[in-house]
Design a protein around this nucleic acid. Structure first.
Lengths: 340, 340
DNA sequence: GACTGGCACTCGGTACCTGCGAGTGCCAGA
DNA sequence: TCTGGCACTCGCAGGTACCGAGTGCCAGTC
């Protein structure tokens, strides 16, 4: 029916107005600012239905309506058109990211860029080790019985670990070790590295076997576990922008959750590179994120997301804009990392 | 005179009470909570003098007194005794930092630890490259004409740079390059690395000179400049703790300044490992830091500070406690990094 | 049957007032 | 030089009244 049609149109108008003004929106203002072709009284009837269905709510009796999480969800799923980025924004992305000298530089620029584009808190995940492959392994001798292993992945991450060896080793052994490790592991995905160890041990010269066992177990232990995933966070100043307007009470629990990283990492685990994931308010199933929405997407090639990035903000956010920004930045970062 | 003596005692009492209660403190409360041996009326006279001298001020006529920046300064310089850490705190430091697997891990644990101990925002600087020496240089070939340089410093930092070479190179050349670079640079401080280049170029086999020139210039350009100093920041949630109590207006400018890093890095540039540096309110000479104090110290051996760490909080902070915590943590981190 | 104009009603926010109490400065006396 | 007393100031909490935005409902119109 044309009936339902208009009702959705009303919901869209409410979301748009509320996002831009931060005031509960009433029927009269709605009729004025959008040409819905009907009078405020009719809109009121529609609003009553929308409220009954749970898409909007009134903060108090004599106030306008505010979208609920469910309302935002419907808006995101059915009512929002992708908002193309402006030319200025596209240029900003290139200008910001070009000239980055290493992975850390790329990611910290990315997080600043995203924060600036969306005026929200930005979150960027390092390429997950578990999806990376070994590009090179370096062994540096620090002391007679102490080595530093440096792992370089094909995504540009560099990780280091100290290993204390049971016996002293000499420079020749270090060189041999380096050769063997690289022969065995280069090109291998970190998740598969464990499978290579038995082979390696078998073919290795006997005098190196103990050493190799020690070294590989350190590598596997510390590098393959998911706790090694890391985040860069920026734009937290944006949380303080709306004063107490945007978040109920205080931003403290949100800041804590962001610093904790675990919560965000779990959300990041669900992204892929082809669709922008939007989690709204309570959907986040974490107390501190109630009242917050999370817009994220994976970066990397579509078939192989290296990691995720996104923004966190109040549920009252510009979804189309933020989704567009997140996607555009993820694409650019994906290309950038594929090149190097 | 015993006169001035007591006046200082009054100031100390005011600072202590104000820090713990966050309420302007009046003469009567002061007389009750501290045994100054005189009546409220006398204290009032002293307060009048202290106010005239600019150490304290009244928010409004019928309120108690609050220390000014100048008052805190006097308190820190002359009135505060070093507050020893509790046994629990000492244990917390060890428990928190032991088991860190690499430099990044040490520093991010440190920042969390400091934030937790002081309940303020914690800031930790990576060991400055300019004060580090080369432990090892690794060259990894990514493509025919593209190399990745990995620099490992004696402080545990690992930095990587991509270099595009003018001509294709083969594996032998890479190996030679690696040997030459390490021979020339290992053990050399980064600030002195530039001096070694002419020598290196002269003694190198002619066919490698072009390559070495390219590589060294990249190294020097990107690694020696101070912009390469990095910070880890944590505990920003503590800014939201006091509500609007601690900071005039909003915490936004402060959060922005922290993310900007430049401001903090400049302050960090002034620390050394032997004395705790305290900058109070306006002393910071940066608008966003008005109303904030910064307690910092260098870590590393006394003769060679590797970097700085500290906390940022409202001027109304527990200076003795924070100074003690910052110093204790810096010492522990110094030892930790010296070992590896 | 769908829409509209009108109307009574609700209720949060603001402005204003008042009384209370903490805290002060000053002064006379010990 | 210190102390007790006293008048004074002024922010704050609580109470009240008013205003206006916004609503729900109903009778009337197309």
């Amino acid at each position: 029916m044309a009936h339902d049609e208009r009702r959705l149109e009303v919901l869209r108008a409410i979301v748009q107005d509320y996002v831009s003004t931060n005031d509960p929106v009433g029927s009269k203002a709605l009729a004025e600012r959008h040409d819905l072709g009907v009078s405020p009284a009719t809109i009121r009837n529609d609003m009553a239905v929308l409220e009954e269905q749970g898409y909007i709510t009134q903060p108090h009796t004599s106030a306008g309506r505010v979208p609920t999480d469910k309302g935002y969800r419907l808006f995101v799923d059915r009512l929002s058109a992708v908002k193309p980025l402006s030319m200025a924004e596209r240029r900003a992305i290139e200008r910001f990211l070009d000239g980055a000298v290493d992975l850390h530089d790329v990611l910290s620029r990315t997080v600043r860029l995203l924060a600036q584009l969306t005026r929200q808190v930005a979150v960027v995940q390092y390429p997950t080790l578990s999806r990376s492959a070994v590009r090179h392994l370096e062994v540096v001798q620090l002391a007679a019985a102490r080595l530093m292993l440096v792992l370089i992945t094909d995504t540009g991450r560099v990780e280091q670990r100290i290993v204390d060896t049971p016996v002293d080793i000499d420079a020749d052994a270090v060189a041999e070790l380096r050769t063997l490790l690289n022969a065995a592991f280069v090109g291998v995905k970190l998740t598969d590295a464990g499978d290579k160890v038995p082979d390696l041990l078998e073919t290795a010269p006997p005098h190196l076997r103990g050493l190799i066992a020690t070294v590989s177990s350190t590598l596997l232990e510390t590098l393959v576990e998911p706790s090694e995933d890391r985040l860069v966070i920026g734009g937290t100043a944006n949380l303080a922008r709306g004063g107490a307007l945007d978040f109920p009470g205080t931003v403290r629990p949100l800041l804590e959750a962001l610093e904790e990283q675990v919560v965000v990492l779990r959300l990041m685990g669900q992204v892929d590179a082809s669709t922008v994931l939007v989690r709204i308010g309570e959907e986040n199933a974490h107390e501190a994120l109630t009242g917050a929405s999370f817009v994220s997407v994976g970066y990397g090639s579509p078939d192989r997301a290296l990691g995720g990035l996104g923004v966190v903000g109040p549920t009252r956010m510009d979804y189309p804009g933020n989704m567009a920004a997140v996607r555009a930045v993820a694409r650019y970062v994906g290309h950038l990392l594929a090149e190097s």
